[in-house]
Design a protein around this nucleic acid. Structure first.
Lengths: 248, 248
DNA sequence: GCAAAAGTGTTGTCCTTACACCCATGC
DNA sequence: GCATGGGTGTAAGGACAACACTTTTGC
């Protein structure tokens, strides 16, 4: 069953099969593909998103996600990395694929697919080294219309992020290595756009038992300093839960 | 901010902008795109998946998902529908986009992206009207290697489905209009591949309060007949929960 | 001493789990 | 009458929500 044909064939026969496959692929319709990066940033206070002015004349004045077409033999994950690198100068940012958008009318220049990638990072840990097209952080609260279907993509990714952060410890990458529980709670409140009870929040995280007490304290705060914790990524990786339970 | 340039322009100026955009898009690299349908089926006993023999000589003997390239101006959702229709004769099946796979080496004939779509249906409600390429249902337990990266795609979709069915009432489409709780529980046990406690399962669903007691009973069962219920889709739609709580 | 946030516990409610017996039906 | 699954309740433990006061620090 395992590629019988292939494994029993001579090299030249194989070469022929590959040539056939190549010919077949060459006959497929081809479509321009872009990747769009939805980079959410947290500055300790607010959730923001990184936008540029659209390159396209027709969208002059509109804000746009960071996008570019995918190169001829480029994996999409790499394309997304490249876009982020070349548009912002940021490096080593973890991106996750969210969804592919394919409405034929989404690009005024004809049919273009786009694959949305999403990240969440601490604005203060990542310097924008390139500022072309007025690249900057926008508050998530005050977004107007955007180029293409980018508002729809952004909204989709925002919801995706809100769900994601409840199920995965994304948030700890946004904080300093050592952080106070106020910082942690604030992060969740901002991203989820809700208020949480302080005592219950603490209980919750202590019960999860993924926080390491460093024994150190904040300084530079104009009030009583809080204890500083680290997130125990190793323990988390080991204990990852797989089952959640039917609930809808 | 809202497309200033556009809204203030004459029709001919707009036409020019569209032409420019079209020219730009024409300069993008283009990539062949396929859609692959991962159709899970439930027959009351087992979880199965719909496969065909690969069209490609190089994968002769290997099983493959239902796929085809996307047409030139075809939205991907429609392409997935079309693939399913033309490969199986099934109509009106609800498909959800799961993920795009882009490894450059995934197709022996060169770079081809594929977008995976997933569905879950009751095998007995959907007749296969076309059986080309040995189309048939395969038990999910006994899958060997597959063509392309289709095993990887299938595994990804299987996990996606297991998560999805816990958070959305997908399962009710698999059952007859009126169903017994045994049928419902069996469905979850098979799809999630776990055993559930019968009393707790009942309590759970009664507590959710989305089941309507029809007052009717099974017949044709070789044991005491169970009550038949319907799912209250309207009530579910109204009460959909949005918040689940931090948990990882 | 005042402002601001840290730190801390209890209670009630609800959900989850584990578990065992009698009942109705077909054969 | 036997096999098969239907139908039911309870008790214990765990999670969650609501809620207020004292402490520490900077200013």
């Amino acid at each position: 069953m395992k590629r019988e044909a292939e494994t029993n064939l001579s090299t030249s026969q194989q070469a022929k099969l590959i040539k056939d496959a190549t010919k077949l692929v060459a006959s497929y319709p081809k479509v321009p593909i872009t990747v769009d990066c939805v980079i959410f940033g947290f500055d300790g206070t607010e959730l923001k998103v990184l936008l540029i002015r659209s390159d396209l004349e027709i969208f002059k004045g509109s804000w746009s996600l960071l996008g570019d077409f995918a190169g001829d033999n480029e994996e999409l994950d790499e394309a997304a990395d490249r876009v982020l690198r070349t548009r912002t100068g940021m490096d080593g940012v973890y991106l996750e694929q969210v969804r592919t958008f394919s409405k034929p009318s989404r690009h005024p220049g004809g049919r273009v697919l786009t694959v949305a990638y999403c990240s969440l990072l601490n604005i203060e840990h990542h310097q924008l080294k390139i500022l072309d097209n007025e690249l900057h952080w926008h508050s998530i609260q005050s977004l107007g219309d955007m180029a293409f279907d980018h508002k729809e993509i952004l909204d989709y990714c925002h919801k995706w992020l809100q769900k994601r952060i409840q199920e995965h410890p994304l948030g700890f990458n946004l904080l300093p290595d050592k952080f106070s529980l106020r910082e942690l709670q604030n992060l969740y409140e901002v991203i989820l756009d809700i208020k949480l009870d302080r005592r219950n929040f603490r209980k919750k995280f202590f019960a999860m038992d993924f926080l390491i007490d460093t024994g150190e304290y904040e300084d530079d705060v104009p009030h009583r300093p809080g204890r500083l914790y680290k997130f125990n990524f190793q323990k988390y990786e080991k204990n990852k839960k797989s089952w959640v339970g039917i609930d809808f």
